[in-house]
């Protein structure tokens, strides 16, 4: 039994094929798995390990390094409130406190209905809209308390499903390109380019020598 759906397994195989060393596909595959399942399950990591020819522990070791890869279940909407310095100056810490009150959970927790997980996040590069928050990595800001309340309301009532897909779905645009040019062809091209360059430089030097 495969963890990936047939469609995603096809995508996984495309991703594995993009790199000279297939382990490079590890993070893209983790995102793909999260997109399918909402979080990165053990079952998914075992399958990713198989696809990459490494141990599941290696997949987990890498995945656990990154904040966006969640090996535990998270809510449908992962709400990240930024409290880093620019947002903090704009009231980020207070916004986080408000978010915690509104959702009824401390940062790091998930609401009982599985709708929301609240996170305190580091700078998300949206500082001109401080204080800001991200929901499943879609940005909102600046957010006064009332803006936040409206955002939660919109999410609860599915009014933002166009812009904010469920957690795990990161990019909705998949690679659409011809098969990779075989590296042997590229390497031959480069050898030829380098040879030609050398020849040009030699000719230039000769010219320079002649002029002297």
């Amino acid at each position: 039994m495969s963890f990936f759906t047939p469609e995603n397994l096809g995508k996984a195989q495309v991703l594995v094929g993009l790199y000279p060393d297939k382990r490079s596909a590890l993070i893209p595959l983790c995102h793909l798995a999260q997109g399918q399942h909402g979080h990165l399950s053990n079952e998914a990591m075992v399958e990713i390990a198989e696809l990459l020819g490494i141990q599941p522990a290696e997949v987990m070791g890498t995945a656990s390094f990154y904040d966006m890869l969640h090996t535990e279940e998270v809510g449908k909407y992962l709400v990240g409130v930024c409290t880093n310095v620019a947002c903090m100056l704009g009231g980020g810490l207070e916004l986080l406190e408000h978010a915690s009150d509104v959702l009824g959970i401390p940062p790091g927790a998930t609401t009982d209905d599985g709708m929301f997980t609240l996170e305190e996040v580091e700078c998300v590069a949206h500082c001109d809209k401080a204080p800001c928050a991200q929901v499943n990595y879609r940005y909102f800001g600046p957010l006064a308390d009332s803006d936040f309340d409206r955002l939660v309301d919109d999410l609860r009532s599915d009014r933002l499903s166009e812009t904010v897909p469920p957690h795990g779905v990161l990019s909705r645009v998949f690679r659409d390109a011809p098969a990779m040019v075989p590296l042997e062809i590229i390497h031959q091209e480069r050898r030829d380019m380098d040879e030609a360059k050398k020849a040009r430089l030699a000719a230039q030097n000769q010219d320079a020598g002649g002029k002297q």
Partner: peptide
């Protein structure tokens, strides 16, 4: 490679899958 660093920074642990 059955044991690995898990997590990051001062929350790094060694563990198995």
């Amino acid at each position: 490679a059955l044991i690995e660093f898990i997590g990051r920074g001062d929350h790094t642990e060694i563990n198995v899958f």
